[in-house]
Simulated assay, not measured.
Amino acid sequence: MDSPERLRHLPLPLFAVPMGVGGLGLAWREGARVLGAPAWVGEGLLALATAAWLLIAVLHMVRALRHPGSLAADLRHPVRSAFAGAITVGLMIVTGGLTPHLPGLAAGLWLAAVGMHLVIAAWTVRVLILAPREPAALTPPLLIPMVGNVLAPAFGARLGFEALSWMYFGLGALLWALLQPLLLGRAAMGPPLPALLRPSLVIFLAPPAAAALSLSALTGGFGPGPLACHGLAVGFAAVFLTMLGEFARAPFSMAWWGWTFPTAAFAAATLQAIAAHPLPGLGVLGWAVLLASSAIIATVCRATAQAAWSGALFRPD
């Protein structure tokens, strides 16, 4: 496949790459604080995520200029359109990486990211109201634009936007409470997700993990609220551990990136919980969760690079 055709079929879900890599960087930053892990690992991953976000954004801008119909088709697609939310969630994570180093720039980018994410979430709700979907079109990636607001306070509260962060948390939590029962109902009653989309089920892990991180930032500690959210995340993690064989049989697709940010956010929340409520042996658990998330993301990155090299990544669905 030549370069122009590759650009035509550039996957919108590629914006999940900086989400996953950046989320892992934040987890390693917590690992440096809690476990004494090398600080350069987290900072390096966050720098890589920033570079990936910029590169993917530029490529999609070029795609929009050369193949506007192709991008418009993605934004109308019932599954791929949800990854528009990954654009702004990835930018939020970039602000988290910049906050200790360039807080002024981070604050400006955070305001831009949450403003754009609100527009994307509002548009997604509008489409769902005006054009109701069949149950088969209700898939876990819908949580990205709808519930991404839950993550915003994890960075905004540390930048001084406390009131605005509480508002975004309330919006994201309400949308999460409304949407997740619909998605769980579809999973329980069918139709079953296609094999290519089955890995996206792990996205259910992201909202409670992100909510734990945000409530920790908003309340200044890992108290009852963050612990309750993390308890739900632990429950989902236990379910997905029993499904490892099922996930391992899934053919590669961009849905594999659904494993990345949720497991990274879960690792970060677990490390915060360990730091706030230390017990003997929990350090070993922290390392296990952090390294497991790292192994998952390394595996998905490798598979994605192989698909890009072979051209499989740029073939239409």
Rank of each mutant, 00 (worst) to 15 (best):
M1P: 12
D2W: 09
R6P: 01
L7S: 00
L10N: 02
P11I: 00
G22H: 03
L26R: 00
L26G: 09
G31K: 07
G31S: 09
V34I: 06
A37H: 08
W40R: 15
A52W: 04
L54M: 12
L55F: 11
I56M: 03
H60Q: 07
H60P: 01
L65V: 14
L65W: 14
L71G: 10
S81L: 03
S81I: 01
F83D: 01
A86H: 04
V89G: 07
L91C: 12
P100K: 02
A106L: 06
A106C: 04
L109N: 05
W110H: 12
L111C: 14
H117D: 01
V119R: 10
I120G: 06
V125W: 12
A131S: 14
E134Y: 11
A137T: 05
P140A: 06
P141Q: 03
P145Y: 06
V150K: 02
V150T: 12
V150W: 03
L151R: 04
G160V: 00
S165R: 04
G170M: 09
W176Y: 15
A187D: 15
M189D: 14
G190K: 09
G190T: 08
P191I: 00
V202G: 07
A209Y: 07
S214I: 12
S214D: 12
G221L: 07
G223M: 07
L227M: 15
H230I: 10
H230W: 15
G231S: 11
V234C: 13
G235A: 09
L241K: 01
L244D: 00
A248R: 15
A250R: 09
W256S: 05
G258H: 03
T260D: 03
T260G: 14
F261N: 03
A267R: 05
A267I: 07
A269F: 05
T270H: 15
Q272S: 13
Q272A: 14
L279Q: 15
V284M: 11
L290K: 02
S294Y: 05
S294I: 05
I297Y: 00
C301K: 00
G311K: 08
P316S: 01
